[in-house]
């Protein structure tokens, strides 16, 4: 009696919760079971469940290739550089933005710097093409030629791409992370700066001894969160920007791009599913580890 009344009372809430829970089950939980694909010798005629088991052979195929090392190295190294460069640039810009007293100017700068973040990577790759294309690119035609220099085959030369990728990643992402740091900086009480000025502290000293120490918690939280994602790469950046150019793979191929190409272009289910599970599992371990670290450093910000 009591139980059925309780059920009747909460039934509407359960019904309201249901659609989204079903979606999460289909979109997030079923693929977790789908991981078994990585241990199967996939045969489309027989379907996922009918295909024969293949043990760890798919992983063996993947890790005997040079690719496994290249995509791991690229994914992790680019992320490390992105984290360091991104942190320095966006904290700097946030501090500068905080100095602007004029509301109109501040809003203008902030809005302008955010525009690239609004655009998809496809659009960004079009812009990059307008700048870098061999025949019609602005840099080759308007800049290098007028300076009397040799034109550069941008999409065919590996050595430029680490710089291009880091630069474009910053260009697109700096507005976003600047706002995050800025929201932490504006929270600092003006009294500290007032007192420092009375004591004769220079601007640089104020930044060094007030701003930076006080935004340290934000910095650490964001740092740890991005460490947890170090095995994930931005598919758009690494796939769209180099226009999936095979010559550049050595410096542009990351796990996400590799999985896409193996799955959709080469029909190599063995290696693509192995790489995809490799990423998911290592990513999971990283998230758990970093969350463990957050719990030690600062319980409040732990995810769970």
């Amino acid at each position: 009696m009591n139980k059925s009344r309780k059920l009747r009372r909460y039934l509407p809430l359960y019904l309201m919760a249901l659609p989204c829970l079903i979606y999460i089950f289909c979109n997030n939980y079923l693929p977790m079971f789908g991981i078994i694909i990585a241990f199967k010798k996939l045969n489309f005629a027989k379907g996922i469940f009918g295909s024969p088991w293949n043990g760890f052979n798919n992983f063996k195929f993947l890790f005997t290739t040079q690719d496994a090392w290249v995509i791991t190295r690229n994914t992790v190294l680019y992320n490390v550089v992105f984290i360091i460069v991104g942190m320095i640039c966006s904290i700097t810009v946030a501090i500068l933005l905080n100095e602007i007293r004029s509301k109109t100017a501040g809003k203008f700068y902030q809005s302008a710097i955010l525009i690239p973040h609004l655009m998809s990577w496809v659009i960004v790759s079009y812009i990059a093409y307008a700048l870098l294309s061999n025949e019609t690119g602005l840099i080759n035609n308007s800049i290098l030629k007028s300076m009397g220099k040799e034109v550069v085959n941008w999409y065919g030369e590996k050595r430029y791409w680490p710089f291009i990728l880091v630069f474009v990643n910053q260009w697109k992402g700096i507005g976003f992370s600047t706002i995050v740091y800025l929201s932490s900086i504006v929270g600092i009480s003006q009294d500290y700066y007032e007192a420092a000025r009375i004591d004769g502290a220079t601007k640089w000293q104020q930044i060094r001894y007030i701003t930076l120490p006080l935004i340290k918690p934000t910095v650490i939280t964001l740092l740890i969160l991005s460490l947890g994602r170090i095995f994930n790469s931005d598919f758009g950046l690494f796939y769209q920007l180099p226009r999936n150019s095979g010559i550049l793979y050595d410096v542009t191929n990351t796990i996400d791009v590799y999985v896409y190409n193996a799955l959709m272009n080469n029909n190599d289910f063995a290696k693509s599913s192995a790489a995809s599970v490799y990423q998911a599992v290592v990513g999971f371990v990283l998230v758990l580890t970093t969350n463990g670290i957050i719990r030690k450093v600062d319980r409040e910000n732990a995810l769970f």
Binding site: I24, C26, N27, N28, Y29, L30, P31, M32, F33, G34, I35, I37, A38, I48, D256, V259, Y260, L263, F269, S272, S273, S276, V277, Q279, A280, G283, F284, V287, L288, L303, F304
Partner: peptide, 15 residues
């Protein structure tokens, strides 16, 4: 849990 773990791109694709 879905914030922590996912089945990866290939598994999603097949589902």
């Amino acid at each position: 849990i879905t914030m922590l773990f996912n089945g990866g791109i290939v598994a999603s694709y097949f589902i």
